[in-house]
């Protein structure tokens, strides 16, 4: 029987719960072999959520031998994810950021159950990749902010009355957010998204809130604490920059 989660707002997916229950009955040698299985289609493959549970359980019970076998496998999976999502091309010193994220993840296990860390790993037992996503975004955001790599592009000063120049492209972004990219979109939209990420903060907020998250113009204005006209202006300015970038592709 899997140990209940401390965070009562969370629940493990039933499939994960079942796999944990089975793994808990297995001996050290079997777990060691299963942890090294790298094919997710194999019946022996242990999802990362299970590895997190088994690691927490082993550490709580003082079974450090099991922890030493499972931890490298979990870290290697997290590292593979980070190499894809925080590649060297994304920022200076990406390797050091990946190291910090992995280090934070590993330390969560040694601090598990202590004050301020009572149930943080519960999130990782429910949806490992999405919990890791929070940790990654948090670290990358801090690193970029510390290293001042987020250099604002100059605001466009005369775009107030310009229409939204490329609604079609941004509509594709919105569609991609909800259903995934088409083959054609998949070719060049990643570049558009990178450009979107580099827009000045005000424009980025307006575009994401309005066109990707799907707020109305009025809601977007309210969240940004400006009037609707300013939102229209920011969207137009962003469209102009994105259109220029698209033409360069």
């Amino acid at each position: 029987m899997a140990r209940p989660l401390l965070n009562k707002n969370l629940a493990r997916p039933p499939g994960i719960e079942r796999k944990i229950d089975i793994a808990l009955t297995q001996d050290w040698a079997t777990l060691s072999r299963r942890a090294r299985e790298t094919n997710p289609q194999s019946g022996d493959f242990l999802p990362s959520e299970c590895l997190v549970h088994l690691l927490r359980d082993a550490i709580r019970r003082g079974e450090d031998r099991i922890a030493r076998v499972l931890m490298p496998q979990l870290l290697k999976r997290a590292e593979a994810n980070l190499e894809r999502t925080v590649p060297d091309s994304r920022m200076r010193d990406a390797e050091s950021v990946r190291h910090e994220i992995l280090s934070d993840l590993a330390m969560m296990f040694t601090q598990d159950g202590t004050e301020g860390h009572e149930d943080e790993l519960d999130f990782y037992e429910c949806k490992f990749l999405r919990a890791l996503r929070f940790l990654r975004i948090d670290h990358v955001r801090k690193a970029l902010s510390e290293r001042k790599e987020l250099t604002d592009l100059p605001e466009s000063g005369d775009g107030q009355d310009e229409p939204a120049l490329d609604d079609e492209m941004l509509a594709r972004l919105s569609r991609m957010a909800s259903i995934g990219p088409s083959q054609e979109d998949a070719l060049y939209l990643p570049e558009v998204i990178k450009a979107l990420d580099k827009l000045p903060p005000d424009q980025k907020r307006a575009v994401v809130l309005r066109r990707i998250i799907g707020h109305t113009e009025e809601q977007t204005a309210k969240i940004c604490k400006v009037d609707k006209r300013t939102i229209r202006y920011r969207l137009a300015a962003a469209d102009k920059q994105l259109k220029t970038m698209k033409e360069d592709l």
Binding site: T38, K76, R77, N81, R84, K194, K204
Partner: peptide, 14 residues
């Protein structure tokens, strides 16, 4: 933005 950049919800395995 992150979700659009990295859509995969599948395990990355070494």
């Amino acid at each position: 933005i992150d979700s659009l950049m990295h859509r995969s919800d599948e395990e990355d395995v070494p």
